[in-house]
C-alpha cells in the first residue's frame, strides 16, 4: 500500500487535482487507513488506465464512467467464468465430457 504522494511520484502525468477528482467520482477507490487514504497495486493500475483514457486517448469524462462500468462487468463475467471452469475441471473425466457434449450441442 502506498500513499497519494507516492502515486503522484510514480505516475507523473496525473496531477494531484485530477487524482482527487477521480477519487471523488469513485473511479478510483483507495482504502482508508486511519485518516489517510492508501492505494494498492490494483488502484495504481487503474490510475494508469484512467491516465491513458483521460490524458492520452482524449476520451471525454462523460464516456469514462461508461467504459469503466463495462470493464468492471467484463471482469466480473471473466471471474465467474473462471469459477465455473475450475468447478468443471475438478469433475471426473466422464462428467467433464458430458458437460462438454451438452455445451457443443447447445451451440
Amino acid at each position: 500500500m502506498i500513499d497519494e504522494q507516492e502515486v503522484l511520484t510514480k505516475i507523473t502525468s496525473v496531477s494531484a487535482v485530477q487524482l482527487r477528482i477521480w477519487i471523488t467520482k469513485e473511479w478510483v477507490r483507495p482504502a482508508q487507513s486511519g485518516a489517510a487514504i492508501v492505494f494498492g497495486e490494483a488502484d495504481l493500475a487503474r490510475i494508469r488506465l484512467l491516465d491513458m483514457l483521460d490524458n492520452q486517448l482524449g476520451v471525454g469524462s462523460e464516456a469514462i464512467p461508461i467504459i469503466l462500468s463495462l470493464i468492471d462487468q467484463v471482469h466480473d463475467l471473466r471471474e465467474q467464468t473462471r469459477i465455473i471452469s475450475r468447478a468443471i475441471d475438478a469433475q471426473p473425466a466422464d462428467i467433464r465430457s458430458k458437460i462438454l457434449q451438452a455445451a457443443l450441442e447447445n451451440d
Binding site: 490494483a42 487503474r46 494508469r48 468492471d72 471482469h75 466480473d76
Partner: peptide, 29 residues
Amino acid sequence: HRYYKEYAGADGARQYQSDASFEDLGGVF
C-alpha cells in the same frame, strides 16, 4: 507496467466489482 486487467477480478480489486447480478443468465449462473 502491469495492466489493470491483471488485478481485476482478484481480491485486490474487490472495490471495483460491478453491481450487476447476471441473474438473467439463468441456470447455474
